[in-house]
Nucleic acid binder design. Structure first.
Length: 672
DNA sequence: CTAGGGTTAG
């Protein structure tokens, strides 16, 4: 008779549970044991688990305890209690391969890869041979910890034990080589396998995808089909890393795959949503999410974490709030990723209160939670709050490079020059974070917006990194705002040479050259843009009404209510002119050609969106707009006036920050 | 008892 015994370091709850178990009548042992066995296989919650554990030890004939030991180990591991799993393991006197496998798997499933590898080593030195269950698991530990060195050793052992023909072991090897970046290794394992299944091919797809080889990944998808295997949900999931910021052809390829796979399970939907989100197609993502709801496919935490950024992108506040209610109802919370995504969604919809509420209710916060809430306040220009939050964060969390980007840009939005400098010092000196281009760009922005154009210029000159287009772009905006033309032209020349990919910089350049009368350069920018195939990003604004996001294009006429909108806009502009409004044509190149400037100015997308919202909501209702470019001066002036004339608050989120218009004023203090 | 899907800045 072998006894499992109670682990020595049991918690107090455990002893209480034991006492309660003792009070229970001694049941007929065989049937009690059978029912416990069933319950254990269903991974009970920790309290039930401990009770059963006690009963097993105290009341049952323990002759079958090896199988109970295994079940207990698995159940504890499923609840994240690997140290109890380990205590049980330690008390089993004669360990066979299954027991080692369960222990290793417990570690791997709980992301304790080093413990798993260590356990594997002691397994080898205790004369227990690993089997074809051990290897896939230990290979996963190698993949997850990107340990190619150990992975290679494991492969050698696999070969020695003649297990390389096993399907699962082979699949594990492909995944291991792929994750560790050895695509040739992965490929040769795949080629040598006597038998391959979908997982084998999917692992190869994942390997290429994780290493940026989208075309190779696609090629493998086609190849598997020549072997008579069709892509499945797993293929789509494996492709995901390769399909971010990619061409529309590539997205279409996955869409096609999505149409062909079984769609009664969750994963294909989750992947397709994530792909839309990662390719700046939030409308499509939301559409798909709604289709899921119609088909009664239940979203999980992953669906939610993927769709929420899309809601944030679109400022789809009602949709976001509905999802928030859904996660509360379905008890998906607490879940760190979901909570973090909720904070960000509320913040991007301009609902600071709600964002803060989610943050306050969290039991565990990581650096992402803090970064999200800090940038939320930062984008609304609440500098003092940001500074307070940051110091609070430091008490429990070590800020990372991204956290500093958000605090630095928050200082910039709030015009907190000295604080920004302080945080930069803190980052480099205290936290020893080596500043990246993003940080330099923030600092340039900070200095530039505060009017320290010369200082910003000196800062660029002494940067240890080659300034990129973002840095010059930030600097150029500062010059543009503060009208420092000489230095602007030098910056413009630098930026010009960098062949920027963002069309906005060309527009900015063109405006600056035009302002200083350098028409030759203006013309040359035009032709260069044509040559490089760079099109001006059309200005669009989103507005949500009755659970639907309406999108307006600059000068757009396609909306069903178009006629009404333009009529109302005309009337409004009349009232604005009475109040002293003079259209500003200066920044007209922002998103239209210079001919016909004034005409087009009236129809920037945000104006259309504002009027649309005005027509369709009750007087006094707050209007929320999101646009894909920065607000131009003219629209900013117009929005201030409209807020006064119509007595409505208007919140416009542009690419940089929030503008909260109320009674003729904007929260940015005309500083943006 | 085999893979694969999630959140933060600009």
């Amino acid at each position: 008779m072998k006894s499992i015994g109670i682990p020595l370091h049991v918690s107090r709850q455990f002893s209480t549970a034991c006492q309660k178990a003792l009070l229970l009548p001694a049941a007929t042992v065989p049937s009690e044991a059978a029912s416990y066995s069933q319950v254990l296989d269903k991974w009970p919650d920790i309290r039930t688990l401990k009770k059963i554990h006690c009963r097993i030890i105290l009341h049952l004939n323990l002759s079958s305890c090896i199988s109970f030991g295994i079940k207990l180990m698995r159940a504890y591991a499923a609840r994240g209690q690997t140290s109890i799993t380990r205590q049980i393991f330690d008390r089993i006197p004669e360990r066979n391969v299954v027991i080692f496998n369960v222990m290793i798997r417990s570690y791997v499933n709980n992301h304790l890869y080093h413990d798993a590898l260590f356990m594997f080593k002691s397994m080898n030195s205790s004369n227990t041979n690993p089997d074809y269950y051990t290897f896939p698991c230990i290979l996963k530990a190698c993949s997850a910890s990107m340990d190619l060195r150990v992975g290679l050793q494991v492969h050698t052992q696999v070969l020695k034990m003649n297990l390389d023909g096993n399907l699962y072991v082979g699949n594990g090897l492909i995944a291991m080589y792929g994750k560790c970046g050895s695509l040739t290794g992965a490929r040769s394992v795949l080629d040598e396998m006597p038998r391959r299944d979908v997982v084998s091919w999917n692992s190869m797809v994942a390997g290429y995808a994780q290493n940026g080889g989208f075309n190779d990944a696609l090629e493998v998808c086609r190849e598997m089909q020549t072997f008579g295997l069709n892509p499945d949900a797993g293929t789509m999931a494996s492709l995901l890393p390769a399909v971010t910021n990619t061409s529309s052809e590539n997205v279409a390829f996955v869409e096609d795959m999505f149409m062909k796979v079984r769609r009664d399970e969750l994963v294909p939907w989750n992947v397709m949503i994530a792909i839309y989100v990662n390719n700046s197609m939030p409308n499509k993502a939301v559409e798909l999410y709604m289709e899921m709801e119609e088909r009664r496919i239940e979203p999980d935490a992953i669906t939610i974490s993927s769709i929420l950024p899309a809601c944030g992108d679109l400022s789809a506040m009602m949709m976001g709030r509905r999802i928030h209610k859904y996660v509360e109802r379905k008890r998906i919370l607490p879940n760190l990723s979901v909570e973090n995504a909720l904070i960000d969604m509320h913040a991007k919809c301009g609902c600071l209160q709600e964002a803060k509420e989610v943050f306050d209710k969290m039991h565990f916060r990581d650096v992402v939670s803090w970064t999200s809430v800090i940038s939320a306040y930062g984008k609304s220009g609440k500098g003092a709050k940001v500074v307070a939050l940051f110091s609070e964060m430091q008490e429990s969390i070590t800020p990372d490079a991204i956290a500093f980007v958000s605090i630095l840009s928050a200082c910039s939005h709030a015009g907190l020059l000295e604080e920004g400098r302080h945080f930069y010092e803190l980052m480099t000196k205290e936290y020893k974070i080596v500043p990246r281009l993003e940080h330099f760009a923030c600092m340039i922005d900070l200095l530039g917006r505060a009017g320290r154009v010369r200082e910003a210029y000196d800062f660029i000159k002494q940067m240890p990194l080659e300034p990129n287009e973002t840095v010059w772009g930030a600097f150029l905006s500062a010059c543009h705002v503060h009208k420092d033309m000489d230095i602007a032209l030098e910056a413009a020349d630098h930026l010009f040479q960098l062949a920027p990919k963002v069309s906005g910089y060309y527009v900015l350049l063109s405006n600056i050259y035009a302002k200083s009368g350098r028409w030759k350069e203006v013309a040359s920018i035009r032709s260069i843009m044509k040559c490089r195939g760079i099109k001006k990003l059309p200005g669009i604004s989103n507005v949500e009404l009755n659970n639907q996001v309406h999108t307006f294009l600059a000068g757009g006429q396609s909306h069903p209510q178009s006629k009404e909108i333009y009529e109302e806009l005309d009337a409004l502009i009349g009232k604005m002119k009475d109040a002293g409004y003079v259209p500003e044509t200066e920044d007209a190149l922002h998103d239209v050609e210079d001919e016909d400037k004034e005409n087009h100015l009236a129809v920037h997308s945000e104006k259309l969106a504002i009027v649309f919202a005005m027509i369709n909501t009750k007087p006094g209702t707050l209007i929320r707009i999101t646009k894909n470019l920065r607000v131009c001066r003219d629209c900013h002036i117009a929005a201030k006036l409209i807020s006064k004339i119509t007595e409505r608050q208007i919140i416009i989120r542009d690419t940089n920050r929030f503008h909260h218009f109320e009674n003729g004023f904007c929260s940015c203090g005309d500083y943006w």
